[in-house]
Structure formats: structure tokens, C-alpha cells
Amino acid sequence: MFKTILMPIDLQHKSSWSRALPAARAQLGEGVELHLLGIVHDVGNAWVASYLPKGYEQRALEEMKAELDSFVARELADVDGVTTHVGYGHVAETIVETADRIGADLIVMASRSPDELRTFRIASQGDRVVRHSPISVLIVR
């Protein structure tokens, strides 16, 4: 049914992929592409960025790419044609933009169980992606 699947993951938090990966695998079939996305968060403040070492962003992007490739070799060695992507910026925005750029027709991602207080203070990334994505989003809990 789906041809191009995007799965954003945070390699620092196993919960971002441990349940979502089996759900993404279940969607794979002949001719289905799986794309993994790692995101380097935007510092969001020029003052804070001025304290970071020169070349911080580029090094962070390169390290993220290497870690994603290692993840694929370890967790998806049996799947052909997995593509890794590294984004930079706000998480939900980067996910939706990447899905559009690669022509994804499904986003598979993990999300924490709802917590009204946390959602009120800082809406979850999954919630933001669902609200702004023009394609189907499979949230796995």
C-alpha cells in the first residue's frame, strides 16, 4: 500500500525506535523504500550558539550520519535499500519537510503516552507532526 516510508529516530533514546521499527518493518514489501531520519536540534539562539565550538553543526551532522549508518548495519542488515537522512532544525518541521522532499507517503514514529500536563507545556513532536503532515502518520506507543 505504501511505497516510501519515513521513520524519524533519536538514537540517544531507544524508545524512539524500539516499537516503531517493528511497525515500519511490517509495512515493508516489494518495492517499498524505508528512510531513516536523524535530527540535530537547532540551538535556537545566536547567543547560545556563540559558545559552541566552531564547526559544531557540521560535526554534529557528520556524527549523526555515521551513527545512523551504524544503526542500519546493526538493526536493518536484512533489509535492502534503507536510506539514511540527517536533518537540522526543529524536530516536527524537519520531519514534515523531509517527508515532502523524499516523496514519503507514510511517517512511522514513536510517541510517549499522552500526559496532559506535559502536552500543555510542550506539545509532543508526534502531535505536531500529525497536525501538520499532509500524509499518513503512524504513531506507535
Score class of each variant (00 low, 15 high):
T94Y: 02
A110I: 02
P8N: 11
G126F: 02
S136N: 09
L6F: 05
N45K: 07
T98I: 05
P53F: 11
M64F: 03
I135Y: 06
D115L: 00
G55K: 10
Y56C: 10
L117Y: 08
H13F: 04
H132E: 13
L76P: 10
I39E: 06
L76H: 10
K54V: 14
W47D: 07
A26G: 12
A104F: 08
Q12C: 03
G55W: 12
L106K: 10
A24M: 12
R112V: 00
H41W: 07
V40S: 07
R59V: 11
D69F: 04
D42H: 13
M1N: 08
I122D: 03
A110Y: 01
L11N: 09
L138Y: 03
L6C: 04
R121A: 13
T119I: 08
A49L: 12
G89V: 09
E67K: 14
Q58I: 09
V48C: 04
S124G: 14
H41A: 13
R112W: 00
M64V: 06
T84V: 15
W47L: 14
T119H: 05
R128C: 02
E93L: 02
S16C: 02
W47A: 13
I9N: 02
A24N: 07
V140W: 04
L106E: 04
E30W: 02
D115R: 00
R19A: 02
A60C: 10
I122G: 02
E67T: 13
R112E: 02
R118W: 03
L11Y: 11
V72F: 12
R101T: 10
A23S: 11
F2V: 15
H41D: 12
R128H: 09
V96G: 02
I95F: 04
R19S: 05
G31T: 00
Q27N: 02
G38A: 12
P53I: 11
I95L: 11
P134A: 15
E75L: 07
D10W: 03
I107H: 00
T83E: 13
V86K: 04
L68R: 06
T4I: 11
A26P: 00
G29D: 13
I95G: 08
A23R: 03
L117W: 04
H132Y: 11
R59M: 11
L68V: 14
L106W: 06
H85G: 01
D10L: 06
L61E: 11
A99V: 10
D100K: 15
D115Q: 01
E97F: 03
I95Q: 01
R112M: 02
A77S: 15
R118H: 04
L11I: 12
S70P: 00
H85L: 14
N45C: 15
I107Y: 09
R121N: 05
L117M: 09
M1V: 09
P53A: 13
A24P: 02
E62F: 08
T84K: 08
I107N: 03
A110V: 01
L52N: 08
H41K: 11
R118N: 09
A123R: 10
I102G: 10
V137Y: 08
L11C: 06
E33H: 06
D69A: 09
E97D: 14
T94E: 14
G103F: 01
D78R: 14
E33Y: 00
L37K: 07
D10Y: 07
H13D: 13
L37Y: 08
H90E: 15
L138M: 15
V43Q: 12
K3R: 15
V79H: 12
I5M: 06
Y51D: 06
T94D: 03
